[in-house]
Write a protein that binds this DNA or RNA. Structure first.
Lengths: 134, 134
DNA sequence: TTGCGTGCAAAGGTTTTGCATGGCA
DNA sequence: TGCCATGCAAAACCTTTGCACGCAA
């Protein structure tokens, strides 16, 4: 991550790893940093995340309103899809052999090379679906 | 679409249906309108697209840079996935029974209700992939 | 000491809002 | 005629850039 090792960069990484199960927006990261008295400037957060993205250490997705959100990727993330509930925001890592087969099918029969990090299957998770039914 | 029928609204629709195979950004729509001497204001385009989106007549996606792009949906689009080449921008409608089976699997086994209009499988199409190899 | 990193302020780009005017029904 | 639609200008956002200062190596 860059050339120098700084407190700010490790703080950005810490916030991301403390929230490994969530996708965080820049402003959420800023808020968390403020709460922890980290003194992280907005610009620094943007630049730190850019570096991490170039090193493929984070997944960047863009919300419908144009705001970006970020999440530290784990090794498995390169090999599975992510499903996101548009109602509660929950992110589900889809480890499933049937999905693997489909990715292979798409690669071989449709000649398309999927980038699973950039792909998010959108929808509604079961608990939100039941709530909406009420 | 709204309450009144206006020239501007039908012009937005015409531009979208003339480009049924492409995803257009607001500025592209504006350019096309200017070329056709349509005198469409930017604000009007935004509002017309908002209405169409609420009526589920268009698919709105957001590029990594935060810019939105729009495309008229056809009936089939509600039942298949879309794949987008991040290199050339080509959009592929994925009509395939194996994909249908997977969607069913995800619904039944993973209890997730997919919104195929909001989902875009990202990757690189074959011709771009071969070019990159060179 | 060198030069990369930081963060404020300003600029850039897209989208939304306020408001007076225009046009459909 | 009554209201909705339009479009300009301004505001609101998120993100990027310029630049002087601070800090890692």
């Amino acid at each position: 991550m860059g050339i120098y090792k700084t407190k700010q960069k490790s703080n950005v990484l810490k916030i991301l790893s403390d929230n490994i199960d969530k996708e965080l927006t820049i402003s959420q990261i800023k808020e968390i940093a403020d709460q922890m008295d980290m003194k992280l400037g907005l610009t620094t957060i943007y630049r730190g995340l850019d570096e991490l993205e170039k090193m493929n250490q984070i997944r960047k997705t863009v919300r419908p309103n144009g705001e970006a959100e970020y999440q530290l990727v784990q090794e498995e993330c390169f090999h599975h899809f992510h499903m996101k509930c548009s109602s509660c925001g929950k992110l589900i890592h889809l480890d499933c052999s049937e999905v693997d087969l489909l990715m292979e099918h798409i690669s071989k029969k449709h000649a398309f090379h999927i980038d699973s990090i950039s792909t998010t299957i959108m929808g509604v998770c079961d608990s939100c679906y039941r709530e909406e039914a009420n």
